[in-house]
Design a protein around this nucleic acid. Sequence first.
DNA 1: AGTGCAACTCTTTTT
DNA 2: GAGTTGCACT
Length: 714
Amino acid sequence: MDSDSYISILNPDQKKAVVHEGSPLLILAGAGSGKTRVITTKIAYLIAEKHVDPFSILAVTFTKKAANEMKERAVSLEPRAEYAQIRTFHSWGSYFLRTHASDAGIDKNFTVYDDDDMVTLLSKAVPSLSKQQASVAAHKISLAKDYCYTPDSEDLYKISEDPSFRDIYDAYERRLRETGNVDFGDLILLPYLVLKNNDFVRHELHRRYRVIMVDEYQDSNVAQFKLLHILSGIDESDDSFPGSYVCVVGDDDQSIYKFRGADINNILNFQNQFPGTALVRLETNYRSSSEILACADSVVKNNEGRLGKTLVSARGKGKIPTLVFLPTQDDETQFCAEIIEQAHSKGISYSEWAILYRTNAQSLGFESEFLHRKIPYSIVGSLKFYEREEVKDILAWISLIANPKDEIAFRRVVNKPARGIGNASQDKIIASGRGISLLEGWENVKLSKKCMEALADFCESVKECQSLLSEQSQEKLSSFIENVIKKSGLEEHYAAQDEIAGTQKIANLQELINSAVLYPCSMQGLLDFMDHIQLDRTIENEEEDSSRDCVTLITLHNTKGLEFPRVIITGMESGIFPREDKSGEEIEEERRLFYVGITRAQNELYLTSCGLRRLYGRTNYMSPSPFLNEIDKDLIRVIGEAPVSFSSEDPELASIVKKYKKGVCVYHDDYGHGQIVHAETSDEGEYVISVKFETGGFAKFLPKYQSKSLIVED
DNA sequence: AGTGCAACTCTTTTT
DNA sequence: GAGTTGCACT
């Protein structure tokens, strides 16, 4: 495609963003404003018109899906974009670490430990922790890495005030380095540390990357910011080295990953951190009708701390959004099913619809209702295929074949099927081989004869598998994996289980084999395959779903970057959305999440809110989400009535419920000042509140009997 | 070592 | 309410 033609179809702001040069650039791209078009056009333009070597362009996104789409679209505009680095932040980190493994102090055949592996490793590094403590600490370690804190950072207290956290983190790091592997946080943190400490490598990369672009910048974390900053060379620029051209694209109103370490200050302060930054706003929305945008705007404008922008619809007027109050969650699923069926009978395909919810658990009701009515649907996200026992077992074998120092993988499979190598023996073997190889050197360890023989057998099998990999082989990796499954003894093991318990484990393993068919049977192919799995756990049934006409069931978070003609946002109830434990800035993030949901809709938007909902197996009275009140009344059509659950039957209960609401501050004779953090009606019809006191204490009350000792304050 | 029952958590969101 | 974990028992 000719560059004149693809630039001429842009609007003036988009064009400005594409041709800008000479300083860092921040593109504030509202929802549906053609952001991806701008980035891809810019890549094509730089190559075709500015003669930038594609090899020197790095463009990073957050999800593999976005990266693939970006690459595809850039290549269709300019074939040479094929040679540009367009990938996710984490996959770039992995690529970097493979080529600079020894600088980072890791094995070049490393694999990436997931959250579960982190917990297991931490439990071994600090045995005194209970499983739950280990899981909490592992999560904090992840967060620390997102904020770029190492075990010796002064700021570690910001993650955990517990003074022992530093030692726990330190012990974890040492043990992790002994395995030669990395965790997710390392994929960003380690490249940053290598660049910071190694002038040679840093200069090498500075020479290479002339252009760096980051998409969805509002969801970058501190470590990613630091990595970008050091990679850009902005602090070292002089006449001989001007620094890279940095262009970031994002929307502060769509920042929804703070819980994962994303720092909205990255985008709010970008212009300070990269002096001389030019700013381009993309405020023309090509996706939604003006009614939907008005609704979105009336919600998001309640947030403070935003750069501010107003979207203008390029599509003009459409249908007014609808808010529906329903008695129970079963009515909600039926309502959704019915409008979808009605539309279908008028020729509107299922795939025009998306049902959005806050938590994955909410998908269950829709699934059973749709199954019953034979409405086809597909669930996006958490396909837990790679978390299944049998799949993780085979992946552990593969990890161990790649990296014999991998303690977690070793433990997982050395005694499966049972070989008589119990926990105590494992500890001895690992103590002797840690940091070297777990497959040899154990001959000197004191173990029972039976155990020795079994271990020799096991190690022999792993080595046999290792020898099946060769650099020139024309074989596919799938046949290698098939061999691993056989040699591991796990095929027999799981075939027997399938027989007895009626499980599908062998079928799942077959699926794993199939997924490796595109990779060559070499160490490189194996590592690429592992990266593919570890760095993209969500999407698996792409071709199948895109061709099928079905309704999309999806969490609000997962909708980022997607659009649908008709959207239903369900569960608009206080406690669900926003979630009950949110306050202050977190409420703002929930509100942004709502904004993201609304702006997914092209033509029609429905919101549903129920009066009664089952949660954790209990039935709860729900009140409408406070966000609903933020929508101007003339911007939305309301069907049904907001629940006034108790008025008719029990005026006394109603007044109590009204008085002791969640968030209300109370004073108790014995406990002192506190705040109601949770309120619900139990199955027995009792109204129960949970109060957190200033003293740190926590108690539950039945306000019915406590009206004298529990005083509401203002 | 493997089974079976009780108890407990889970409901954020993802690379 | 369901799925998972942990413990005790065989």
